[in-house]
Design a protein around this nucleic acid. Structure first.
Lengths: 250, 250
DNA sequence: CGCCACCTTGAGGTCACTCAAGACGGGTGG
DNA sequence: CCACCCGTCTTGAGTGACCTCAAGGTGGCG
């Protein structure tokens, strides 16, 4: 299954050739495991490359000078991490494992080799980055204009829609974030997140139950996804797969 | 000067070889002119490529379903536009000329050729995209946590710091945005933007004067940039120029 | 048993919003 | 040259969303 996770982001845009698959495997270093709560990278570290998340949940966050924390992205299996740090001398964000996580490094000089040897893969990386940009733009739009209820609903729905294939396809989802962490994602206060959660549950839009195990998080169910989606009302973005303009596969 | 504008974003990361310069010029189509207020692209159009802004100001925005508008980016000379649309079937945002603007198209199939023939330039495009991502992340952080005063100050300061070289280097800056448009950028209401402006002026952090001409905008002065910067308090991001990991220049 | 992290709920305050009306200035037509 | 109009900026008053502070409840774990 770890193989599939690796190719997840890349094959979202193109059907990979076997040669490209092996090339990716060769470029990505051996994975190491991190316990829940362990820090994978500090904001301000020297930039050594990207990371690839095989398994688990990882939080990417920035500490503000007033001490408050802004979570920039909730990473899940298949995600490519630390791209935003590449243009700079030092890392932009910290990466913290939320659950036990398996992470590979994608050393930066191999990234250069990838651009030289596999232009199509490079283009896919570029597209992936542009898509992340759109994700941020949408968050900006939702958070800026609409209320906290919309933000929370959009957040939950995004995690639900984007769950990796291995998670099964029923309407339940374990989200290992505390309400405090969700607040950090959305730029709200923890107490207000709680109030919104209670309200959403009262309206029958979500259902929460205790986590099956240990630290943090809840299991969320979505009994009425259509109504939830209509509440959020995000524009439908359909990805263009195998666009004709990409360079020839290698 | 238009040549310089073209190379502005690229040479932010690397010193271009003459061959790369001519390659870029060849790939970018002839420029066409747009009057102020003219729409360059509609949200929902088919994606035909990127655009390159030689001269002028362009607003990139999304219309929400409730009619409100979110401005995603204020483009200025040298900017590469419409990148976020590339992964999708239809364009993500509308592009509207704010001032008379000169725009070239960067057809999508030539982008594929660029990835194949000029891996180093492709890598620079990738870095540029990652940097835009960071810009959005910072906006998210500022807008989410801090007040409207910070947002407005950060917005003005960002425009001031990022002004193209041709604009001269005195402490004056003509910003052709109405307060209503600034509100759309920041996700605030127009009246509140106005109140903040008045407050900032009362504190001596900015100074406004009438626009030299026609429609919209003001001339802003920044008599006390240090204090303004300390108010905004963004982390300093230093770009890494000519990183060693890039592919060989062509 | 008691600690700790998390969730929950209440009360009161502040920031930013909406609605509404007025001031200013440029552009147009008489 | 003047009257008028329209977009923009400005200002006031009232409302609502979200925040902070604070206290209490719950469950896991040593």
């Amino acid at each position: 299954m770890t193989e599939d996770a690796l190719l997840y982001r890349f094959s979202a845009f193109v059907d990979l050739t076997p040669l490209e698959c092996t090339a990716l495997h060769d470029m990505i270093g051996p994975g190491s495991s991190f316990d829940a709560g362990k820090r994978i990278q500090w904001e301000g570290d020297a930039v050594s490359g990207m990371f690839f998340l095989h398994e688990g949940w990882v939080l990417s966050s920035i500490i503000h000078s007033d001490g408050s924390r802004q979570v920039l992205k909730v990473h899940r299996s298949g995600d490519i991490m630390n791209g935003p740090s590449l243009p700079f001398e030092t890392a932009v964000a910290s990466l913290v494992a939320l659950t036990p996580a398996k992470v590979s490094t994608f050393p930066i000089h191999k990234l250069g080799m990838l651009f030289a040897a596999h232009p199509r893969l490079a283009a896919v990386l570029f597209l992936n980055c542009q898509e992340e940009r759109v994700t941020l733009m949408d968050r900006l739009a939702v958070g800026g204009q609409l209320g906290a209820k919309h933000s929370v609903a959009a957040f939950l729905l995004q995690l639900f829609d984007g769950r990796p294939p291995s998670d099964g396809s029923d309407a339940k989802l374990h989200i290992p974030l505390t309400q405090h962490q969700i607040a950090d994602v959305l730029g709200l206060s923890p107490v207000h997140v709680n109030r919104v959660m209670v309200a959403l549950e009262a309206e029958g839009l979500i259902k929460r139950s205790a986590p099956r195990t240990g630290r943090g998080g809840h299991i969320y169910e979505f009994p009425d996804t259509p109504r939830l989606k209509s509440l959020v009302d995000m524009p439908e973005r359909v990805r263009r797969r195998n666009p004709t303009w990409l360079p020839m596969p290698t």
